[in-house]
């Protein structure tokens, strides 16, 4: 009964509606990808050219990073989609657990003692 599991199907079994949905999803993926490339270029430009002063450039690229992080998670890794409760729970707990560790490491390894 399991003999033809590896044969490809001759024709897709998706309905018109599902195909449209997939196409829409693909458009969203490409758009968000292009947008993220744009953000990355912006970050590089902000650092490479000397138009923006350093004091502003650091928080600016950090802001870009945060935006990009959310785009990655919600659009690329589908956290925005339905039935993604468990992936959401795991990603969020990962962020919640690693953020204090990172902040603590940055603060505690310095010369200043808190």
């Amino acid at each position: 009964m399991a003999d033809d599991l590896s044969k490809p199907f001759p024709k897709s079994s998706m309905s018109e509606e599902e195909i449209m949905k997939i196409n829409k999803e693909r458009r969203i993926q490409v758009t968000s990808f292009a947008f993220m490339i744009f953000l990355t270029i912006l970050a590089f430009v902000a650092v490479a050219t000397e138009m923006i002063e350093v004091g502003f450039a650091i928080p600016f690229i950090l802001l870009l990073a945060v935006i990009q992080f959310f785009l990655q998670m919600y659009y690329f890794m589908h956290l925005k989609d339905k039935d993604h409760g468990w992936p959401n729970a795991f990603i969020i707990s990962g962020v919640v657990l690693s953020t204090p560790a990172l902040i603590a490491l940055i603060l505690l390894l310095g010369v200043t003692k808190y």
Partner: peptide, 21 residues
Amino acid sequence: AFLGFMVWVHHMFTVGLGPIT
């Protein structure tokens, strides 16, 4: 489980990380 991740410095109290920490 959650708190278990927030307490690792208690193994390092005598390292001298400072009073607030």
